[in-house]
Amino acid sequence: MSHRFPWHLVFFLAPALIIYGVFSAYPLVDTLRLSFFVESVTGERRFSGLTNFYTLLGESTWSNAFWNALWNNIRFFLIHMLVQNPIALLLAALLSLKGLKGARTYRTLIFLPTLLSVVIIGFIWQLILSPLWGVSEGLLAMLGLDFLFDAWLGNESSALTTLALISVWQFVGIPMMLIYASLLSIPDDIIEAATVDGASPWRIFWRIKLPLVLPTLGLVTILTFVGNFNAFELIYAVKGALAGPNYSTDILGTFFYRTFFGYQSQIGSATLGATVATLMFLVILLGVMAYFFAIQRRLTRYQM
């Protein structure tokens, strides 16, 4: 025995690996495993191959709900991509202007909502948009736009978009901060050289700065993706587990919750719940892989 057993390694690594392994990694793998089992009324489980997946994707009562939730979730994500991230880019570009007074105050205040609980934010906006209170109607009237007012959260056609915009409002600070940091880390001499060559600030932004922050935009995209396909609290706080009106705000998180725990006459099922979780896992995995293989590989070419 020339080597002594490395006890110090065990001492340093064991606590973290055991807690993470038992309460995060194992449950995840076990959930994937459970999706291949069905449960009898007595609670006995037996292996059933892809039965749960056929049920969820093939039986119309389940599959309609699943595709509806997935489609709503995609819309939820697209609204973030089209509204949140361009606004974040604009704010970051403005904040990073040379010699801008008050940049520190602006960024601190715009970032603030990201730290608050989604539940609380949901309730606050529900009050503000409530026709009962009339705050938003009153504000629109001041601008002469009160004809635009409607029960946005109550209408089937606008509820999901409204919720997505509330989420955008809350989280725009995170991509803003990441892009801002990335813009600040561009070396000054590159910008100076371009200025000396007579490039306008507008041109410098599109031709030099934007390509250089593309990797950050890729990171922002994947963070938004994982966050959106894991969302639950906002819908649950504002619309409850039924994600009304008429499931128009149902996303995968709320669908998972209902499948697992049941609601009204529907009895919850652990194995079907695990199947929904597995499908969510596949969606997220697909997104993460697309990011690593397609986007990131192409983007690194721009890196210095």
């Binding site: 194992y26 979780a277 896992f281």
Partner: peptide
């Protein structure tokens, strides 16, 4: 030590995949 990089990869999964997806098994545990 052997397995160092593998352990980092093992932990990286926890950053990418939300722990919420394991809820069914966490509850049973």
């Amino acid at each position: 030590f052997r397995g160092n990089r593998l352990l980092m990869l093992f932990l990286a999964i926890g950053i990418m995949v939300p722990i919420r997806l394991g809820t069914v098994s966490i509850l049973e545990l």
